[in-house]
Amino acid sequence: MTDSQGVSSGTPDDQIADELRDELRGVLAEAGITQNRKLVRRILETGLGLGTDGASRLDLKIASAALAEMREAFGLFAPFALTPKVTIFGSARARPDSPAYQQTRNVSAALAERGWMVVTGAGPGIMQAAAEGAGAQHSLGVSIRLPFEEKPNSSIEGSRNVAMKYFFTRKLMLVKESHGFVYVPGGFGTLDELFELLTLQQTGKSEPTPIVLLDEPGGRLWHGLRAFAQEQLLPAGVISPDDFDRVLLTDSVAAAADEITGFWRNYDSLRWAGDRLVLRLRAEPTAAEIAGLDDSFSDLLTSGGFQSRGPLRREIRDHDRLDLPRLVCHFDPFKVGSLYRLIRALNALDSAPRSGSPDHLR
């Protein structure tokens, strides 16, 4: 539709839906795309919408490059979808003879021995140490193209690294695929990654995962950060009292590795179904344990208690972890930042496995 001056009065999506949807279906059919066709069509429609919007050349270059980078990164991670991953962050300036460097090598090696892959930014310093500790076969890199940091470090095989132009696409891939995170002291970049992850988990935009702040032996940097949060941010009312409790501060490599793997001892995954939260577990809790959860976490629920039951209809439709026992509850969406407390309680149940394998993560 156009107005008297010949200017379109409908939205770009409306125009595409009315005029081009059938043609896009034909394009998808010719390309042999049979899975997730609706989502692929939406991507095409968005691209066409950018064109009809009259987006600037710069905006189009950003959108095009970001989508291309994400496609390449998805391809890098796809062969390892069934392998649990931990992302390790830290300073690019750390020297090989520094305690932090050796600490990183040790924790990376410990996690690799437990079957985990290590993801890094593929640069020097702590990123190099993490890749060295894990070994080439257990390392993946997501590097950034910078004038002074153009190539991935020598411990990352070329086929195991994807180079990004934009920090925001790189940050997405460093977080999206991992089931745990270790932060070794670093600068602005490390703190940026840490605070973004804490924000994502505090707001429920990212599912709960274990977060470890690993200092060098005897180091106090992370303790200083926690003190700042407790002494400055908390009194100002800009964070909640338990916001920093979701992370482990330690200078112990063994404690760091145990925190990453132990988080998945009993807890497997979660899913929202309308106003209900589904928690998938490795072991079915007893009636007494469920009653204990009801007493301990009633403040996180909007009504009722925890119910042990089989998969919901939506889960069955999507074939989503159907073999696992689950607890269903009406969880207060404004308290998603406290989910980690509940998960730790689930992992501590007597019915939980005594030890866990990361094989159950996918």
Rank of each mutant, 00 (worst) to 15 (best):
R276T: 01
R314Y: 05
S308R: 14
R282D: 10
T286D: 14
E315F: 04
D299E: 13
D295R: 15
L312K: 12
L281C: 02
F297N: 05
R276F: 02
G310D: 00
P285F: 05
R280W: 01
T286H: 13
R276K: 10
A283M: 10
L312P: 04
D295E: 15
G305M: 09
E289W: 11
G304H: 04
L281Y: 03
L277N: 00
G304V: 00
L301F: 11
G310W: 02
P311Q: 02
E289C: 08
G305N: 07
D294T: 09
G304K: 00
L301Y: 10
S298V: 12
D299W: 13
P311W: 04
A283E: 10
S303F: 05
R276C: 02
F297Q: 03
L277F: 02
P311Y: 05
S303K: 14
L281D: 00
S308I: 02
D294R: 05
E284S: 14
G310L: 01
E315M: 00
S303W: 06
A288H: 15
I316C: 07
E284A: 15
R313D: 11
S303N: 08
T286M: 14
S303Q: 12
L312H: 10
S303A: 13
S308L: 14
I316V: 13
S308V: 11
L312I: 07
G305Y: 06
I316E: 08
P311D: 01
E284V: 06
T286I: 12
G304R: 03
A287I: 07
R282I: 08
L301W: 12
L300G: 08
R280N: 07
A287E: 12
T302P: 09
E315S: 00
R313V: 10
D275P: 00
A287V: 09
L312F: 11
T302E: 11
L301T: 04
D294C: 07
L301Q: 08
P285D: 01
F306K: 03
G310Y: 01
D295A: 15
D295I: 09
S296D: 15
A288P: 10
S296Y: 11
F297V: 06
T286R: 14
F306H: 01
R309D: 10
A288V: 15
E315G: 00
G304Y: 04
A287S: 10
L300Y: 14
E315D: 03
D294A: 10
T286W: 14
E284G: 08
E315A: 00
A291R: 13
G310V: 01
A288L: 15
F297A: 07
R314H: 05
I290G: 02
G292W: 07
D294L: 08
G305H: 05
A283H: 04
P285Y: 03
L277C: 02
A283P: 01
E289D: 11
L281A: 00
